[in-house]
């Protein structure tokens, strides 16, 4: 019978095996230290959502959808809309995930993806304003993990970004009686998204650092670091787990992230997923 906790199955022998191979710059799935697993992007797959993406990274699969509401803006930002990110680690996706309200892991996933987007001049919140002080769009980017194969953060980042690019929000205006009306047009990704931030996650075992940990690497690693980058800038960093990183290591990883981020931006060509409506 399968036990509840598959962490037990990752033995110290397996940890040593993975670490020893990494020292030789070899990984069990044949990748080099700085290679991603295969990304696969399916855009705009959900009919009921105002934007969506189904993204796989190796075995990891995350489906994200966008919904909106119209609400009043925050008093200190009267002409800006709001974009929130949520993540659900469905118990369907892994025996490691339990039912119930969001736990630390799902909140971290949502927060890291959110911060990568928020600090990158990605979502044009001023374009989400219908009328100053009165009405703005509130966007909900909700990520659902369908299969957990390690490195949810990077997969979630691409999934959330693609979702925003596929967005098609009905354009509203307030009429003379202050009632909401539809203009018949839509706001799409070109209106809402500017910068394309990518988040890159590195695992660390002993003193070996590697990109995109898969599930078994993630379970045996001491910790990880996630770095969000745009074309020109670093926008967010999150170190988690018990590993420590030297200043030189962080500098090296920041540099690597810019480089790999540029390549991803080119390879994915996310603007091809714009939805014209």
């Amino acid at each position: 019978m399968k036990m509840m906790n598959i962490k037990r199955v990752i033995s110290s022998i397996e940890r040593k095996y993975i670490a020893d191979n990494l020292k030789k710059e070899e990984r069990l799935d044949g990748r080099g230290l700085w290679d991603y697993r295969k990304y696969n992007i399916n855009a705009n797959t959900i009919e009921s959502a105002e934007g969506s993406a189904d993204v796989t990274l190796g075995d990891t699969r995350i489906i994200t959808g966008l919904k909106y509401e119209v609400g009043t803006p925050f008093p200190d930002l009267p002409d800006e809309g709001v974009c929130t990110v949520m993540a659900e680690l469905l118990p369907l996706a892994s025996p490691l995930f339990e039912r119930g309200p969001p736990n630390e892991q799902s909140i971290e996933l949502a927060r890291v993806v959110d911060r990568g987007i928020r600090h990158a001049d990605c979502v044009q919140t001023k374009k989400l304003c219908i009328k100053e002080k009165e009405a703005v769009y509130i966007l909900f980017v909700d990520m659902y993990v369908i299969n957990h194969g390690g490195n949810l953060i990077d997969c979630g980042g691409v999934s959330a970004l693609t979702t925003l690019i596929t967005s098609h929000l009905p354009e509203g205006k307030l009429n003379d009686d202050n009632n909401l009306e539809w203009t018949g047009k839509y706001l799409n990704g070109k209106d809402i998204v500017n910068e394309l931030p990518f988040v890159l996650t590195y695992g660390k075992i002993d003193d070996i650092i590697f990109l995109d940990p898969n599930l078994s690497e993630e379970l045996v690693s001491d910790g990880r670091i996630s770095i969000s980058v745009t074309e020109e800038k670093i926008t967010s960093i999150q170190k988690s787990g018990a590993a420590t990183f030297s200043v030189d290591e962080v500098k090296m990883l920041a540099n690597k992230s810019m480089e790999i981020g540029k390549q991803l931006r080119k390879d994915f060509d996310l603007w091809q997923y714009l939805v014209e409506k």
Partner: peptide, 26 residues
């Protein structure tokens, strides 16, 4: 869904549904 003991996906018109089974387990 690789992690599950059994799984299936269904598209029925515009309905899209995943199901995963875990068990027998504790």
């Amino acid at each position: 869904i690789n992690n599950a003991d059994g799984s299936a996906y269904l598209e029925w018109g515009n309905n899209k549904v995943f199901a995963a089974v875990y068990g027998p387990r504790e």
